[in-house]
Structure formats: C-alpha cells, structure tokens
Computed example of a mutant assay.
Amino acid sequence: MTLSRVPAADSSAPTTAVPELLGQVAYQMSRRLEAALGPDGPTLEQWRVLALLADGTGRPMTEIAGHVRVPPPTLTKIVDRLVDRALVYRRADEVDRRRVLVFLSEHGRRTHARFAPAVAGVAEALVDELGAQDAARLAELLERLRTLPA
C-alpha cells in the first residue's frame, strides 16, 4: 500500500494548494479505510459511529453527528441501519428524559473488535510509509488545523 506521491513543495507555490491536497488525502484515506472494512463490514460512517461508542459510553445524536461529520438527518439514517443490524440501540437519557442516547450493543462490540485490527492496520501502514517522525509531525500539524476556528 503506497501513498500517491505529491511533488515536493515549492516554496514559491501558492498555499492555496493546501486545501486541495487535504481534500485529496482525506478521500484517499477514506478509500483505504473502506477497503479495510471490506464489502461485508460496516460503511465508513457506520464504523465511525461504532468506534465512537466503543468506549461503552452512550452518546447523544448531536455529538455523534459531529464526530461522524454528517448532518443530523443523515446520522439518523445511519443509526437506523445500525439499529436494524442490532449493532447499536437507543435509550432515553436517565438525567434528561427528552434526550436520546445511542449505545453499542454486545453484537456491535464484537463487530467493532472484529474490524478494529484492519482499521489499525491502515494507520500502521501510513506510519510505515511516512516514517514515525514524519507521521508524528503530520499528526501535530493536522491537529493544529483541526482546532482552528471555522
């Protein structure tokens, strides 16, 4: 598995290329993750829900939507499909009965455990391709970008 090579950055090149490159890399990484999940596994969006819920904490739909990066109506469809597959379940929040929380079911936990090594393999392959130092620097830079105001 090799990354598509991007020409070395030319210091005179406009920085307007950065957003385009980020989009291309995000697309490429999504394709790698989808391949790791395979045709019988969860979709990438479903995987993101399972991975978020894997800590055993129930989450409100708004938090899940932000994590999965989809609008609330789209998340409702994703969660409905996960409920249909018995991977997650909904329950009213005990503190605020108006709020619904989503939890990973036991079947969802087993499904997460089954696919987690393949997803981790994608990350490990990326570190191998970039080298540990460059991968750490990339993570640092991406974290800085992620925390910038919208």
Score class of each variant (00 low, 15 high):
Pro39Ser: 14
Pro39Tyr: 08
Pro39Glu: 14
Pro39Trp: 00
Asp40Cys: 00
Asp40Arg: 04
Asp40Glu: 13
Gly41Arg: 11
Pro42Ile: 00
Pro42Leu: 05
Pro42Arg: 03
Glu45Arg: 12
Trp47Lys: 08
Arg48Gly: 02
Arg48Thr: 11
Arg48Pro: 03
Arg48Gln: 10
Arg48Ile: 04
Val49His: 07
Leu50Lys: 11
Leu50Arg: 11
Ala51Pro: 10
Ala51Asn: 14
Leu52Ser: 11
Leu53Arg: 06
Ala54Asn: 03
Asp55Cys: 02
Gly56Gln: 09
Gly56Lys: 03
Arg59Phe: 06
Arg59His: 12
Pro60Gln: 07
Pro60Trp: 02
Met61Ala: 14
Met61Leu: 15
Thr62Leu: 04
Thr62Gly: 07
Thr62Val: 12
Thr62His: 15
Glu63Ile: 11
Ala65Ile: 04
Ala65Phe: 03
His67Glu: 15
Val68Trp: 04
Val70Arg: 08
Val70Trp: 04
Pro71Ser: 07
Pro71Phe: 06
Pro71Val: 13
Pro72Tyr: 09
Pro73Leu: 01
Thr74Pro: 02
Thr76Ile: 08
Lys77Cys: 06
Lys77Ala: 14
Ile78Lys: 05
Ile78Met: 01
Asp80Tyr: 01
Arg81Val: 00
Leu82Phe: 03
Leu82Tyr: 04
Asp84Asn: 07
Arg85Val: 07
Arg85Thr: 05
Leu87Ile: 02
Leu87Phe: 03
Val88Leu: 04
Val88Gly: 04
Val88Ser: 06
Tyr89Gly: 08
Arg90Ser: 01
Arg90Ile: 02
Arg90His: 01
Arg90Phe: 06
Arg90Trp: 00
Arg91Trp: 03
Ala92Phe: 02
Ala92Pro: 07
Ala92Gly: 00
Ala92Asp: 15
Asp96Arg: 10
Arg97Thr: 13
Arg97Gln: 13
Arg97Glu: 12
Arg98Thr: 11
Arg98Gly: 13
Arg99His: 06
Val100Asn: 03
Leu101Arg: 12
Phe103His: 15
Leu104Tyr: 07
Ser105Ala: 14
His107Arg: 15
Gly108Arg: 09
Gly108His: 05
Arg109Tyr: 02
Arg110Phe: 01
Arg110Cys: 02
Thr111Cys: 10
Thr111Asp: 11
Thr111Glu: 14
His112Gln: 06
Arg114Glu: 14
Arg114Lys: 15
Phe115Gly: 03
Ala116Lys: 12
Ala116Val: 13
Ala118Gly: 10
Ala118Gln: 14
Ala120Asn: 12
Ala120Thr: 09
Val122Arg: 12
Val122Cys: 09
Ala123Ser: 13
Ala123Val: 15
Glu124Met: 09
Glu124Phe: 10
Val127Glu: 15
Val127Gly: 01
Gly131Tyr: 10
Asp134Ile: 07
Asp134His: 12
Ala135Tyr: 09
Ala135Gln: 09
Ala135Ile: 08
Ala136Gly: 08
Ala136Tyr: 03
Ala136Gln: 07
Leu138Lys: 00
Leu138Phe: 05
Ala139Asn: 07
Ala139Phe: 05
Glu140Ala: 12
Glu140Lys: 00
Glu140Asp: 14
